[in-house]
């Protein structure tokens, strides 16, 4: 994990570091307007821009280990403070999306597998194909227009289209549209995985044995089928939580949800590299931690997998 982290940060540092790819780093920070020489030198000194690349990287990493991600070029505030205030919002959105994905994905996949080749199977297969191919920002805007704008116009109960809170709605209601948008594509994948896994399991000998010994259809599915079919689905969901933490940029931007993704999006536009760098570092770290947890969880889900022990 550590070499991966170091590798990723070096690549990021090369990409983000003002001056590494050419150009005056101070101009990159301050823009085209001429500034005084004193301020220029001050910025150079403060950011260590006159130091070689490896020294800048060493300084960044030493500070990083102390929880210091530097200071925003544009906002003049510590990046750690800015991102930590946003991180719970991103996590809230990602967890809600995974819950939506888990519920609807598994249910749809189950129905589709059990009622194979029925109207419902076709409906699930068709709708998942549509969802997978929809661009996130477009789907988000579609939901905004339908549930926010049109429902209000038609006098129906409507949903908020942006932001995290308002006097009008509780936060959980603000969460609905962005979470559904974020969950859409993954729900489709979950449904498909669930369907194929369950179909595979249903063809196994032990399922026939269970049915032969007199268990009812639902007992066979729930008692024997689901347990086995769910392992890859849960693995996917775990990994997807990590992907969602990193994949919220578009959703947060469309819905003005104040999370890490939106912060990175804005920072890229403003060339505020400490925020971009810090945001990506946090996301990479989170994805790595979640992946590690998923790997560890295999041992619990599948007793055949054991870590750190030689096979005998």
């Amino acid at each position: 994990m550590v070499p991966v982290f170091i590798g990723v940060t070096i690549i990021l540092f090369i990409l983000r570091s003002p001056g590494v790819l050419g150009g005056d780093p101070v101009r990159m920070i301050t823009g085209e307007r001429a500034i005084s020489e004193t301020l220029y030198n001050q910025i150079v000194e403060k950011n260590g821009l006159d130091k070689p690349f490896y020294v800048q990287y060493y300084r960044y990493m030493s500070k990083l280990l102390q929880g210091d991600l530097g200071e925003s070029y544009q906002k003049g505030r510590p990046v750690t403070d800015i991102l930590l205030s946003k991180f719970p919002n991103t996590l809230k959105l990602a967890i809600t999306a995974v819950l939506i994905e888990m519920f609807f994905g598994i249910v749809a996949g189950m129905i589709s597998a059990i009622k194979r080749y029925s109207f419902w199977d076709v409906l699930v297969t068709f709708s998942t194909s549509v969802l997978v191919s929809l661009p996130v920002f477009w789907f988000g805007m579609l939901l905004q227009i339908l549930f926010g704008l049109k429902f209000k116009e038609w006098g129906l109960p409507y949903l908020p289209m942006s932001q995290m809170q308002s006097d009008q709605f509780p936060q959980i209601v603000h969460l609905i549209l962005p979470a559904v948008t974020l969950a859409a594509v993954s729900t489709a994948y979950t449904a498909r995985i669930m369907r194929s896994q369950l179909l595979e399991v249903m063809g196994q000998d032990y399922m026939r044995t269970a049915a032969a010994k007199g268990l009812s259809g639902s007992q066979v599915i729930w008692g024997h089928g689901m347990k086995n079919a769910l392992i890859p689905v849960i693995t996917f969901l775990g990994l997807d939580l990590g992907a969602m933490v990193g994949g919220t940029v578009l959703t947060e931007t469309v819905f003005s949800w104040p999370g890490v993704g939106r912060e990175i999006y804005l920072a890229i536009g403003q060339r505020d590299w400490p925020i971009v760098m810090g945001g990506v570092v946090i996301i990479v770290f989170m994805v790595m931690v979640i992946n590690l947890l998923v790997d560890i969880s295999y041992a619990f889900l599948d007793p055949r997998i054991r870590y750190g022990r030689q096979a005998t």
């Binding site: 805007m141 926010g148 409507y158 289209m161 942006s162 947060e252 931007t253 939106r262």
Partner: peptide, 17 residues
């Protein structure tokens, strides 16, 4: 109201917000 996306802001405007 601090919004990121101009299109979203315009939808909010159309909705009377």
């Amino acid at each position: 109201q601090i919004l990121t996306d101009e299109d979203t802001a315009f939808l909010e405007f159309q909705a009377g917000n």
